[in-house]
Every structure is written in structure tokens, then in C-alpha cells.
Design a protein around this nucleic acid. Structure first.
Lengths: 202, 202
DNA sequence: CCTCCATGTTTACAGGAGAAACTTATCAGG
DNA sequence: CCTGATAAGTTTCTCCTGTAAACATGGAGG
């Protein structure tokens, strides 16, 4: 009679448990207004225990955001790996994957880009974000080399692409990309505007 | 001896004062972690007084956001009114104005697009946001009519334009549009990508 | 002049963040 | 096998917040 009864004093992997609980709550309410104490309670642990693993509430939030970036990166990479005919198709696939991810996890996605997940004070979070951004960057580089994308400053193109995808994701989350207004495939239509250009002449 | 001494019991326009104080604090720290009590304190009023004007803390935040949208709209309209040669130039001017606004008021701008300024539960805020968005919409409509912009579904083009501008504003705020990476005029360069298109052939 | 109502104030309370001090389990070395 | 040291929990405490309720005040209209 030693282990499973009455919860052992030491949790085993409380850090992981806290993260998972918080992710669950985030997914359930689509917001991160939950309190640290509530997370502790649901993890069956005293309200001060989390402080052994996270300096403060925001540090937990940043860890959630980091997880989000990792998952988003996986999703995008996976979507791109479905060998597609052109760089353009790959870009669209990655963008769609990102926006789908946002729609499936609106709370998490918002957190990832909110000021509560401050990348300037958390190298790990920063790296995770950069790494995901890097997927897009490499895609553009390859596309420029094989002549699919216009040969302009890579950073400008990346900024435009990233801004577009993220902006569309936010619009999508907020339900501002409605079929009746933008047609059957609003995301596709909007991406085409970027890909083809907005102006009539170059 | 009746007025200026010892503050009169009734403030005169506490609602306005609370908003202004909160805007000041937002501008000072570039975040909205301030407490309602602190706002009351700085307005020289008891900590419960604000509840006579705002149901709760979030209602004040939404009012700040609403003010932000109004101001942003004014700024963009002003920028566009500098009679410019083309619809394209007007679009660039409006976009630049939006991004400049974001850079000058990063905290306010973030609040405007954060989930703490929930447009789905505040018609006034929603209207203000729609109204500002409308500026872009009308610009695009005019541009399509005079043949400056490609004749695609107006909503798709608006979504793309809005997403681009907002996305760039966020990148700019976060210091992710650095000169050494994107050249001397990063915003201009990124906007050109949208205007000219990313792909080589149509 | 008196009374009403919007706008303030005081008081009260249920929580939360986080610090400090205390408790347990585990593990490494003698 | 005992013995600390240490990591990971727990209890307790303080300060602060949001918000509700009851009360005060003063200006405007009858």
C-alpha cells in the first residue's frame, strides 16, 4: 500500500500536468482568464505548488504559447509535405494550415500573439516563434530560387506573407470572413489577392 | 468659496476624466494591466465611483478601444485627403497612417485588437471598428471603379488589404520590421509585395 | 422650500497573487 | 542503515482587487 492510494506527496510530473490542465481550460473557454489557483485546484495540488515550476502566472502562459508555436509549426510542415506541384500551392497549403489551426484553437492562437506571451522576455518562446516563422521563410527562399516568386527583398516578402496569413487568421477567428461576403473559399480568395497582386499593372 | 476648493462632491465629468486617465496610463505603460482602483485614485475619486459610469473594468477598456478606432479613422482619413495621384498612393498613405498610429500608440492599438475589447458584446465598439474598416472598403471600391485595382470580389480584396495592414502594424509594433532586414522603408516594401503580387505570373 | 435622482462615498466581502516558513520524499555518501 | 541535502509540496499570511450594498450629497424641477 504505497503508490496509487491517496495521491503520493510528490506528483511525479506536476509541471506537465499544470500545462495540460491549463491547455484544457484554454481550449474549453477559449480565453486565458483562468487563475493560477484554479489550475492548481484542477491538478489536485495546493495553490502554491505551481510556483515551484513557474515564477508567475505569465510564465505559465508563455509556456502554453510556446507549445502552441511548436504545434503550429508541425501542422504547417505537415501540410507542406504533401508534395504539391508548385511553390505557390505550398504557400497556400501552409497558409490554410495556419488558419485552420487558428480556427481549431482560437484561444491558444490569440494567446500566442497576445501581449501576455511577451517574446522579448522569454528566449524559449522567442525561439519557438522564430522557428515557426522560419518555415515560411525557407518556403519563400525556395520559391524565389525556382522562379515561382518575384525576386524582391526576401524579408519584405516574408513580412507581407506572414502579415497576410496572420491577419487572415485573426479575421477568420473573429468570424469576419463570411462565405456570403467573400464567396465559398474566403481564405483562398484573399490569398489570391496577395499572390496575384492588388493592382492592375505592375 | 464654493468651487475649486476641496473638490466639489460631484466631479463634473467623471466619465471623461476616467477615460482620459486610463488613456494616459495606457500610453505611459503601453499595457492595460492597470486596476480600476488605480484609475479612480488618480482621478481623485473613491474606488467605487467608476461603477456609476462603467458596469465593470472591461466596459472601460472597450470604451478606450472605441476611442482608439475613432482616432485611427480620423488619422487615416486625414492621410488620404492629401490629394494623391492614384488610388494606389491613397492606399499606401492610409496603410502608412495606420501603421504610424500603431507605432505611436502601441498599447492602445494592441488593446483595440485584443480579446479584452470584445466587439461581439458592445455595439458601439463594433460600430466604431466597422466604420474605420469602411474607410478602406470605400477606397477599394473607388479604386476598382477607376480601374486602379483588379476587379475581384471586393470583400476578398478588403480582407487581404486589412489583413496586410493590420499584420504589418503588429509586426512593426513588435519591432520585427527592422531596416537592416527589409531595407530603408520596410512597410513600403511589404505593401509593394501585396500591390504587385507575390507570384511572377498572373 | 422640499424632494428626487444621479453621482459620490464608505463599508464589506470573496477571491487571487505571491512570499515565507514548514513538511515530505528521495537520493547520495559515509 | 543512518544522515543530511535538496526538490517538490503544503500552510499560512499579507496586500490588493473587483464588485455589491447601503448611505451621503447637492443641484434641478415642482
Amino acid at each position: 500500500m504505497s503508490e496509487t492510494k491517496d495521491r503520493p506527496y510528490h506528483h511525479g510530473d506536476l509541471r506537465r500536468a499544470l500545462i495540460d490542465t491549463a491547455l484544457d481550460m484554454l481550449a474549453a473557454d477559449q480565453n486565458w482568464t483562468f487563475t493560477l489557483r484554479e489550475v492548481a485546484r484542477r491538478s489536485g495540488v495546493s495553490h502554491a505548488a505551481p510556483y515551484k515550476h513557474f515564477r508567475d502566472r505569465e510564465m505559465l502562459l508563455r509556456e502554453l504559447a510556446r507549445t502552441g508555436f511548436v504545434r503550429l509549426g508541425e501542422t504547417m510542415t505537415e501540410a507542406m509535405s504533401l508534395d504539391l506541384p508548385s511553390a505557390r500551392a505550398q504557400f497556400v497549403a501552409a497558409a490554410q494550415a495556419c488558419i485552420d489551426f487558428a480556427l481549431r484553437n482560437p484561444g491558444l492562437y490569440r494567446l500566442m500573439f497576445s501581449s501576455d506571451a511577451d517574446k522579448t522576455i522569454d528566449p524559449q518562446l522567442h525561439d519557438a516563434a522564430i522557428s515557426t516563422f522560419g518555415i515560411l521563410l525557407r518556403l519563400l527562399e525556395k520559391g524565389q530560387r525556382d522562379g515561382s516568386f518575384r525576386p524582391v527583398a526576401i524579408s519584405a516578402q516574408a513580412a507581407a506573407g506572414w502579415a497576410q496569413v496572420h491577419g487572415l487568421a485573426m479575421l477568420a477567428i473573429n468570424g469576419q470572413l463570411l462565405e456570403e461576403k467573400v464567396g465559398a473559399e474566403p481564405v483562398r480568395a484573399a490569398l489570391d489577392v496577395l499572390l496575384n497582386g492588388m493592382c492592375c499593372e505592375d
